[in-house]
């Protein structure tokens, strides 16, 4: 007869062991990280210190030769600058929009569910499909954005930005950069918003009720209560978004291929062009890894900030 308490069942005993259950819960994530993140990452490091090509992946150690070559490459410096600039400017706007939207979506209003659903779509859409969509929106001849500007008198013979009928979004240096930033903000804002919404929802209602009783108005509650309380989670949202953007090449690859000239060329794209399209796998890997120390330092600083804010 089976024990009612299950104490004599070794399997049941294991499932009562908090340590064991904890490890079991973590295991899938751990395996995922080790196989799909850790192994490729270590391989990239090995490639960066070798002379592998796309035709020969036998590792022979060449020291820092690839890193020196990358550092001496003038194009790399502009590319690195572009990557930092795109990331920082995008994050600035993402942070502002995500805060505004998170506050709106945590209020009660009719159609909130539908609004949230529509809003999350950019994040749910595969990035390649989204980029192709925006490629058509910014088309040099058939851009719907240009059409709207033409109809509203901004473009065309008498337009403020005329006389041309097209702004040539992806062909002019400044506009191409604006276009890339716009698409990145469009696709990354929903994630940041959802994270911030979770943060706002977790603020204890008694604190907010107390503030209301004390006569605190909207802006004061926001700036002195809500934002400080969600700071740790805001930092996490920012970190996620920055790391994703720093490593992304899909948007630029599909929109501009780095052009005009090198104005939108970023680290991920350039390392792909050198490593895969150009065949110099070792140098492509070395270039991609240049971002790692920066991102690591950034992650440490931001996590410390989040941790301190939490302690307070």
């Amino acid at each position: 007869m089976a024990s009612v308490t299950g104490l004599s069942n070794p399997r049941a005993y294991l499932l009562d062991n908090r340590r064991f259950v904890g490890i079991m819960f973590l295991l899938p994530a751990l395996v995922y990280i080790l196989l799909l993140v850790g192994f490729p990452f270590l391989l990239a490091i090995a490639f960066g210190f070798s002379d592998v090509t796309v035709g020969n992946t036998d590792l022979s150690f060449v020291g820092f030769r690839n890193y020196e070559a990358v550092w001496e490459n003038n194009i790399f410096r502009q590319v690195f600058g572009n990557t930092v600039m795109f990331t920082l400017v995008s994050q600035f706007f993402i942070l502002i929009f995500a805060n505004i939207l998170a506050i709106i979506f945590t209020q009660e209003f009719t159609g909130k569910w539908f609004a949230r659903f529509i809003f999350i779509l950019p994040w749910a859409t595969p990035v390649s499909l989204a980029a192709i969509g925006w490629l058509y929106m910014f088309d040099t001849k058939l851009s719907p954005v240009d059409y709207l500007l033409l109809q509203t008198g901004f473009l065309g013979p008498d337009g403020v930005w005329g006389p041309g009928r097209n702004l040539l979004w992806l062909a002019r240096p400044a506009l191409s950069q604006v276009s890339v930033i716009f698409v990145q903000v469009w696709r990354m804002t929903p994630l940041a918003t959802v994270i911030l919404m979770a943060g706002l929802s977790s603020i204890p209602t008694d604190i907010l009720d107390q503030a209301e009783v004390d006569g605190s108005r909207f802006m004061r509650t926001l700036l002195q209560i809500k934002l400080p309380l969600i700071l740790p989670i805001m930092v996490i949202a920012l970190l996620f978004s920055m790391i994703t953007m720093f490593g992304d090449m899909t948007v630029v690859y599909l929109l501009t291929r780095g052009g005009p000239i090198d104005y939108t060329r970023i680290l991920g794209l350039y390392s792909f062009q050198i490593g895969i399209e150009g065949g110099n796998l070792a140098q492509g890997a070395a270039m991609a890894l240049f971002a790692f120390p920066l991102l690591l330092a950034l992650a440490i600083v931001m996590l410390r900030v989040a941790s301190r804010a939490e302690v307070r």
Binding site: I261, Y270, I274, E277
Partner: peptide
């Protein structure tokens, strides 16, 4: 092939 992949020539002209 790598010079081709990096688009060095059209970028030189565009500048």
């Amino acid at each position: 092939s790598q010079v081709f992949a990096e688009s060095i020539i059209p970028n030189m002209v565009a500048k």
